[in-house]
Amino acid sequence: MKKLLAVIDMQKDFIDGALGTPEAQAIVPGVLEKIRQYHKAGDDIVFTMDTHTPDYRNTQEGRKLPVPHCIKGSVGFELSEELLPYASVVFEKPTFGSVTLAEYAAGGEYEQIELIGLCTDICVISNALLLKAYLPESRITVDSKCCAGVTPESHQNALEAMKMCQIEIR
């Protein structure tokens, strides 16, 4: 079975920076272990990176979430160091979901696509739904133990919403 692991926005600002949370920090070891499993099996791994410019506060997102984060070139933009050796395919994205990721996955004939990362309730759910729209017959899964939301409650709400859209939650 051809499998793809999509590691969503495991960047410093979401882990322990501007928008970091204890829950995000807690998933890093599990995310690393999951990546190592896929790597050892020879499966494909891709990363997304939330990518903003210095004029972030002038964007719609910046006006609704006025916390500058993941500004390209800043320390907070960087992936967590432990994950860097595995980040050979990276998609920068200026918004929550990555059409480029969905197009890449659609071209790869994957039977299963698993998502892990941050934040469950924003970027993970956005990418999971895009992938499901692009690949309605592919098995899309989310490992809930390798994701964290803005809050524990919004994490659970996002998992429930994805279940309703036929995304398998582990």
Rank of each mutant, 00 (worst) to 15 (best):
M1W: 06
K3H: 12
L4W: 03
L4C: 11
L5F: 03
L5R: 01
I8V: 15
I8C: 12
M10H: 03
M10G: 01
Q11L: 13
K12Q: 15
F14I: 09
I15W: 01
I15H: 03
D16M: 10
D16S: 15
G17K: 11
A18T: 13
G20C: 03
T21Y: 04
T21C: 08
P22Y: 09
A24D: 01
A24N: 02
Q25F: 01
Q25I: 06
A26G: 03
V28K: 07
V28A: 05
G30R: 09
V31C: 03
L32I: 14
R36H: 07
R36D: 06
Q37M: 14
H39W: 13
G42M: 10
D43G: 04
V46T: 08
V46R: 01
V46K: 03
F47I: 11
F47R: 03
T48I: 05
D50S: 10
T51Y: 14
H52D: 04
H52E: 04
D55F: 07
D55T: 12
R57W: 08
Q60S: 15
R63W: 09
P66N: 09
P66R: 07
V67D: 04
P68A: 11
P68D: 08
P68V: 10
H69E: 06
I71G: 01
I71V: 15
I71P: 00
K72G: 08
G76T: 07
L79T: 12
L79N: 10
E82W: 10
P85F: 10
Y86G: 05
A87W: 05
V89I: 15
V90M: 13
V90G: 13
F91D: 10
K93H: 01
P94D: 12
G97V: 06
G97H: 04
T100A: 15
L101S: 07
Y104S: 09
Y104M: 11
A106L: 14
G107T: 08
G107D: 05
G108K: 02
Y110L: 12
Y110N: 09
Y110F: 15
E111A: 12
Q112M: 14
I113C: 06
I113G: 03
G117E: 00
C119D: 06
C119I: 13
I122M: 06
C123Y: 01
V124S: 00
S126Q: 11
N127K: 06
N127R: 08
N127L: 08
N127W: 01
A128P: 02
L131N: 04
L131Y: 02
L131I: 12
K132A: 03
K132I: 05
A133F: 07
Y134E: 12
L135T: 11
P136G: 08
P136A: 09
P136D: 09
I140A: 02
D143E: 07
S144D: 07
S144L: 02
S144W: 00
K145Q: 13
C147Q: 00
C147E: 00
C147W: 00
G149L: 05
T151G: 01
P152D: 06
P152T: 11
S154I: 11
H155R: 08
A158H: 02
A158V: 07
E160L: 14
E160D: 15
E160P: 02
M162Q: 05
M162V: 10
M164I: 13
C165D: 10
Q166S: 14
Q166H: 14
I167E: 00
I169H: 00
R170Y: 02
